[in-house]
Amino acid sequence: MSDLRRQLEEAARSHRPDRARMLARIERARDLSAAGAEPRGARARRARPGWPRVALAAVAAVAVCAIGGTAVTSLVQQDPAAPQEVSTGALPKTSAPTPPLTGDSRPPPLPGQSRTTDGPLWADGSVAPDDNVHWAQSNVTLKTQETLTALTVELFVARTERLRSTGRWETRPTADFDLSVHERDGMLVYRWSLKSGRTVPAGTHVFAGQYDHASGGRDAGADVYRATATAASGTYEVHGDFARTT
């Protein structure tokens, strides 16, 4: 009995159903049934075989159903020429909406009302000379004569046609600052806020915002910046604007 089972299992594993032949036989049986005829050889199959043949036929049938049943059902029930319906369902969201960032609640300084020095601080705003007709970089240069224990630098780029942030950089270590880029009141705002426990040494430091804009250059006359800082001698603020293009 164990040899028979092994042979049956090997026969089931090696079986590869002929899809086209099975479909043809099923269709032929349908046609004969519809015509009231009995398939040829049906009478011969009525004879009762011995039990080994019955067992073999049963196992083979199970193997065929397990291996090719799904394919046969698909062939019988689906007409390749008929239109197929595919249920796609709703796509999963890749990420949750990011809430808008909020910066300093104070309004930006007004162009033309600059204060570029205050105590140990000095600042200047300029558009980098390597800008082009599609892209620009605005620099806020900050000089301090004392070590700063707190510092916030804000660059306000006025909204113009096709304005879009492309990045920012700073000469101080990025890990020392909380960074954000957001829109507020018609301005693209770049903000650097010194983290608690970090310091900025005496010297010259640059904070830059980069952006695309409409072709043909851009007027930076409405752009402004502001820097507030704390040193051992007190708290200070400088602010200013950028030169207009000619």
Rank of each mutant, 00 (worst) to 15 (best):
F242W: 01
A150P: 04
R53V: 11
T160F: 06
A42L: 12
A227V: 08
Q210P: 01
A231H: 01
P120I: 00
T141R: 10
G112T: 05
D178K: 13
A232H: 07
A123T: 05
W135G: 06
L101A: 15
D219N: 13
V140Y: 00
S215Y: 11
R106F: 10
C65N: 13
A63E: 08
A90Q: 10
A232E: 14
A208K: 07
A128V: 13
A34V: 10
D118R: 01
L179G: 11
T73G: 13
T147D: 12
N132I: 08
A208C: 15
D178H: 13
L4G: 05
T117H: 09
H15Q: 12
S126T: 14
D124G: 12
T98W: 05
V153F: 01
A12P: 04
G119A: 05
P17M: 04
P100W: 05
D219A: 08
V64P: 03
E183W: 12
A11W: 13
P39S: 08
P173R: 05
F242N: 01
P100Y: 07
V189F: 07
A55S: 08
S114D: 13
R226T: 01
G216K: 04
G103N: 11
V72R: 03
A208P: 05
A81M: 02
P109I: 06
K195P: 02
A63P: 09
S95Q: 12
G112S: 06
C65D: 14
A63L: 09
D104N: 14
P39W: 04
P80I: 00
V86P: 00
R115L: 09
H205D: 04
G112N: 05
A158D: 10
L163N: 07
P108A: 11
V86H: 08
A81K: 04
L56N: 09
T98G: 15
Y236V: 00
V181E: 14
G197R: 03
T174C: 08
L101S: 15
V62R: 14
A227K: 00
A123L: 06
E38T: 14
V206P: 02
L188I: 04
